[in-house]
């Protein structure tokens, strides 16, 4: 069993609105995967389903064979689109908090990353800028030694230099046996770190392919292909 995430006939409705339809997917271990699509294509909904924050309307989703629940949460490190951290906490307290919560949390690595970010461990979260908060949260998420990382728009709110920091953090913390899913619409910035891309359009998968295969077959960058597929 090599797939770390599988979805079969997965669908999600919000009332009458169909947000995800009939998603069939198998994500291999050890890959960095881009979940790409314009706004409202179902990226966040998919990641929430994988984390058990939503329940499917149709079909099923499994993490290493488990339905989303306590077993799967041990394996999955999730960066949600919104921050949920306590504003009054100092970053060092946040590190302790995460260490208490997750068995696989690596305290040294977290401190090391925060140091590189030049965040003072005594700083309270509320005193930090929006971009720095996002970076702190990413550090906490990446400091876990998880099997699967699900990152919802990790580069959405930060400047290009911070994007480089974030990508570097992702690459240097990535282990051969772990899998990273990054959802974003900023493709040009991240395509060089991706192994595999999934294009979501109006709740359906329109393309799932290794990145170098796209360049080889189409002679196009992922960004160019994305602009063609999602042309308004």
């Amino acid at each position: 069993m090599k797939a770390v995430l599988t979805a079969k006939g997965l669908g999600k409705d919000f009332g009458r609105k169909r947000v995800l339809k009939n998603i069939d997917l198998e994500l291999e271990k050890g890959k960095i995967i881009g979940l790409l699509g314009p706004n409202a294509s179902g990226k966040t909904t998919f990641l929430k389903l994988a984390n058990g924050l939503l329940t499917p309307t149709a079909g099923e989703i499994r993490i290493a064979g488990f339905a989303p629940g306590p077993e799967s949460k041990k394996m999955v490190s999730y960066l949600p689109e919104k921050t949920y951290l306590n504003e009054w906490m100092r970053t060092e307290q946040l590190v302790e908090f995460f260490a208490d919560f997750y068995e696989d949390f690596n305290v040294d690595r977290a401190h090391d990353m925060l140091k590189r970010l030049q965040v003072d461990p005594r700083d309270k979260l509320k005193t930090l800028s929006k971009g720095t908060k996002e970076k702190v949260q990413l550090c906490l998420v990446m400091a876990r030694e998880a099997e699967l990382y699900l990152l919802d728009e990790p580069i959405g709110g930060v400047d290009p230099a911070a994007r480089d920091f974030i990508l570097e953090t992702i690459i240097s913390n990535y282990r051969e046996d772990s899998t990273i899913v990054i959802s974003t619409h900023l493709i040009a910035d991240i395509e060089k770190v991706l192994d595999y891309v999934i294009f979501l359009k109006e709740g359906e998968i329109v393309l799932a392919s290794p990145v170098d295969e796209i360049r080889e077959k189409e002679g196009k960058s992922v960004d160019t292909l994305f602009r063609e597929v999602f042309k308004c």
Binding site: G30, K31, I32, D164, L167, E168, I171, S172, Y174, E176, K192, V193, L194, D195, D212
Partner: peptide, 17 residues
């Protein structure tokens, strides 16, 4: 592979290939 990938800012799998 890891150091090279970091230097080039690319995915280690790609560097491996």
């Amino acid at each position: 592979v890891r150091d090279l990938a970091k230097e080039a800012a690319v995915n280690p799998n790609t560097m491996q290939r």
